[in-house]
Each structure stands twice: as C-alpha cells, then as structure tokens.
Design a protein around this nucleic acid. Structure first.
Length: 286
DNA sequence: TAGTGATGGCTAA
DNA sequence: TAGCCCTCACTAC
C-alpha cells in the first residue's frame, strides 16, 4: 500500500530496528549484489522519507534510495537468531542480531551520493508529512497549470506522497471537481486540501492504513490523542497493521455504488493511466 | 487453483 | 506509449 504514509512508517520501523547499529547488507536475489557490498557492515545513521522515496543514510555518506513502486514490499521483523530463510525475490536484506528487513519487488533500489539525494528531493513537490514542507510551492505549480487538479495531485513534482486513494478521497472531502484545471483552483481551496492532508496522512502512518471517512477519522484522532494508537510498537514487532479500521472509503473503488452523501452512482474513468473515482453531483463547481 | 488488478514511476522507444 | 518490477489480496472457476 505504498502511498507516502507507508514510506514514512517504514522509515520509522527501519530506525527502530537498525539505527546506530552495524547492519549486514546482502542481496539474496543477486540483482543488488554490488550495492549491497557497498553498504555491508556499515552503521545506519538515519532513515527518512520524502513522498514515496525512502532514503537511508549509512556512515561514510552512502545513501540507500528505495522506491517501492506499485508492488514493492519492505518487511521489517524481529527474528530469534540463526538462519532466516529467504522467501520470494528478496532484492535487499538488512540484518542485525535482532531484526531482519527484506525488500521485494521495488522499482528503485540503489546506493547514491548525497548529491544525488539532493537531486531527487529537488524534483519532488512538498510532502504533507514533512515539517519542512511548503504548500505554496505546490500552489504555485497548480495555479499555473491547465492540467486537471486530479492529475496535479498525483504528480510527485507538484505534491509528494499522495497517491490514487488520498487523491480521490481528498477531492471528494472538499467537493472539488477532479477535472477542474489547476489554474481555476482557488488558493483557499488548495489550502483546505493541504491542511486536510496534513491531518489525514499522519493517521495513515500511525495506523498503517488510509483513513478518510469522517467517523473513522474522528476515532483515529481520538486514539492518537489518548495515546492508544500504539501502531509504532506493533509495526516494529511485525504485527499486522491496517486492521484497526474497516476498509471503507467515500469513493475509492466504489464504481457503480451509490455516493455515501447524495446517493448518485459513483463514476470512474481512466485519467493519466490511473482510475479516477468521483461523484458527479457532489463534486461540481469547485 | 489460476487469473487479475493495483495504493507507481522509471526507462526505452 | 509499453515494458518492467514480480507482490499480494481478491475473484472466478
């Protein structure tokens, strides 16, 4: 489920398991053998996320850059010691005395220089999950574009970390017509969308699932406020996440079903190669 | 049990 | 625009 929240949660898990320790790095599959050799035995300084990119800094200014793409998985689990069997195509394995991290099916897995890290970050838009994000930079790009707001929200150079689910759901939450050109989006509308993402996406990180429906959002926020989320602990121990809330959205993958607000049939259309879902009645004129 | 689509994005053409 | 990565939940049979 790799939208940005997944990668931020992953960075946290990697830090919890490996930070400040020397890590045995290998490539059981063999495709990353050269890169693994460059990192093997080095100490992990810090892992962080920017949008859907993961950056893990090792000592000696060597950075691991991972992008999960659509089907990639990176599992981080506690292990009892001894031999840990390899299952499937493990591109990268991180290992210390207590933890094992197995990466499968990524689009990107590379050792890069600090300069390259800067280069990748420079081409990404602001990430609602980062403190240093500047929403005005995204607005600048949106307000000068004739492309639809639905396309712009998915363009990682405009906004980093949002994928198809958050895109569909946040446009509905603000009743914005997904086909409206960026240049016709009011700054106040953009600001409301941004602020909403800043509220919603940390819930995705905390619970390991995308939560966008008002009732679930309220429950999730209450759980975070009283400290009972405990998702970080669950993540580090390898417990299964994403089961706390029923998987339920306003629109995403609900083609043909009634809109939960007005009852009109949820529509879908391929836009820039991805399925867009929207309500033709609720999302008009904004 | 086999088949399919997907919460991406890079790269070659 | 199509292929690649080659996982995993879900569906149809």
């Amino acid at each position: 489920m790799p939208e940005g929240h997944t990668i931020h949660a992953l960075a946290g898990r990697l830090n919890g398991a490996f930070a400040a320790s020397a890590v045995a790095v290998s490539s059981p599959q063999g495709k990353f053998a050269d890169g693994a050799a460059l990192l093997d035995g080095l100490r992990l300084v810090d892992a962080s996320a920017w949008g859907k990119h993961l950056f893990a800094e090792f000592e000696g200014e060597r950075w691991l850059n991972v992008h999960l793409g659509l089907i990639g998985k990176f599992s981080v689990m506690a292990h009892p010691g001894g031999h840990i069997p390899v299952e499937g195509q493990v591109r990268l394995r991180l290992l210390n005395d207590s933890w094992v991290g197995d990466l499968r099916g990524p689009t990107v897995c590379a050792v890069v220089t600090p300069q390259k890290v800067d280069q990748i970050r420079a081409r990404l838009g602001p990430d609602p999950l980062r403190q240093d994000a500047d929403p005005d930079l995204a607005l600048y790009r949106i307000s000068r574009s004739a492309r639809s707001i639905a396309e712009l929200l998915m363009d990682q150079a405009v906004l980093a970390g949002v994928g198809n689910v958050y895109r569909c759901e946040v446009l509905f939450r603000h009743r914005v017509d997904p086909f409206r050109p960026g240049r016709q989006i009011l700054p106040a509308t953009w600001r409301a969308i941004w602020d909403d993402l800043v509220s919603l996406m940390p819930l995705g990180v905390a619970f390991g699932q995308i939560v966008t429906m008002d009732d679930q959002v309220a429950d999730a926020m209450a759980a975070v406020a009283d400290g009972s989320a405990a998702a970080t602990t669950a993540a580090v121990t390898g417990a299964r996440l994403g089961n706390r809330f029923e998987r339920r959205f306003y629109l995403y993958r609900r083609t043909g079903e009634p809109c939960r607000v007005c009852g009109r049939t949820v529509r879908t259309q391929l836009l820039a190669g991805r399925n867009l879902f929207w309500c033709g009645r609720c999302q008009r004129g904004r």
